[in-house]
């Protein structure tokens, strides 16, 4: 049975209204035990990976996803790029009084579908309701637990000169789709968030190229900011070749119109991998033969030196720094 209406403060009071919401919205989509205890007991492992992330994206629903899908992908991907096998998630919700329950249900259903796709279970959760105006619709926190296979260590500090830098698909899709959905700027086009869980892609990559030094998902700050962090951690230079970086037409068009740089626009379904040169071909092949990495490309290499440098399409060298504040549309 679907719940009608909007969220009221009663839904957060822990009484019958709360129980109904949990039963009819959360458990109906996410599943769960007959009796709800204060904690979930799950199978463990010698080493586990643990991460948490909070999602406040506006609008809650955007082309290619919604805050629920994003909340599952974001946490699953943080585990996956560490080389862990994502297993369990928690989900915490902050709901604004007046939120349409239909929207909440859409978000929760989307979390369930994405969790199934990512082969993780949402095993525990929490809901709080705040008065109208004290939050913007709904916020979601997810924490995730993954199992670390024995002997696996991936680290941003382990890159060596000669390594290849790969990206699993075109960049800037998520940030552009959300910005256009939120601000509009009068633009229409083929915008779609790249938001997707990356556990299986990471697994395929590690199977084909077991020497992978590190993987990262370039979310806030985009490709450039993430690679700056890797270069800094490994005390190396990463040199990118501009024309090899995949950027789709609509993203490039929107960025050009608004004066934004796609290198700094967020991705939510891409991974960056740094791979020893002798495994680069195998790694790229594994990414490209997987549906989540069909647009993968080799975009640069690790060298002796410092920082991130872009070999521009006219042979100039442009040092890239981490993003300083959100990019704003500009006319200059």
């Amino acid at each position: 049975m679907s719940v009608q209406g909007t969220i009221t403060l009663d839904h957060g009071e822990g009484g019958a209204a709360t129980s109904r919401l949990v039963r009819d919205v959360f458990l109906r989509h996410l599943g769960g035990p007959e009796v709800l205890e204060d904690a979930a007991i799950v199978a463990g492992a010698e080493r586990i990976a643990l991460t948490t992330d909070t999602f406040v994206v506006r609008p809650s629903v955007f082309p290619g996803g919604d805050i629920g899908k994003l909340a599952v992908c974001g946490t699953v991907n943080d585990l996956a790029v560490m080389g862990a096998e994502p297993r369990y998630l928690s989900a915490g919700f902050i709901l604004e009084e007046g939120l349409e329950i239909a929207l909440l249900e859409q978000v929760v259903a989307s979390m369930a579908a994405t969790a199934a796709e990512a082969c993780v279970r949402i095993v525990t959760g929490d809901t709080k309701v705040v008065a109208r105006g004290e939050a913007d619709g709904l916020y979601v926190n997810t924490s995730g637990v993954g199992v670390m296979p024995a002997g696996r260590t991936l680290s941003s500090a382990s890159c060596e000169p000669g390594d290849a830098v790969l990206v699993s698909g075109s960049i800037g899709e998520h940030g552009t789709a959300v910005m256009v959905a939120r601000e509009g700027f009068g633009m229409t086009g083929d915008f779609k968030s790249d938001c997707q869980p990356l556990g299986d892609l990471a697994r395929a990559l590690l199977a084909a190229a077991p020497g992978v030094r590190c993987m990262r998902d370039p979310t806030r700050g985009g490709l450039a900011t993430t690679l700056v962090e890797i270069a800094l951690a490994s005390k190396v230079e990463i040199r990118l070749r501009e024309e090899t970086i995949p950027v789709r037409g609509a993203v490039r068009g929107a960025c050009e119109l608004l004066g934004l740089d796609p290198l700094y626009v967020a991705c939510e379904g891409r991974l960056i991998a740094v791979v020893p040169a002798d495994q680069a071909d195998a790694a790229l092949g594994a990414l490209r033969s997987h549906p989540r990495g069909a647009g993968a490309a080799s975009i640069g290499e690790v060298r002796e030196g410092k920082g991130l440098v872009l070999d521009t399409r006219v042979g100039g060298l442009r040092p890239l720094i981490a993003l300083e504040g959100a990019q704003l549309p500009r006319i200059c």
Binding site: L310, T312, G315, G316, L317, R318, C332
Partner: peptide
């Protein structure tokens, strides 16, 4: 911006 973005000064 273009001169910096294309890394022209270095060349």
């Amino acid at each position: 911006m273009a001169i910096s973005r294309f890394g022209i000064r270095a060349r």
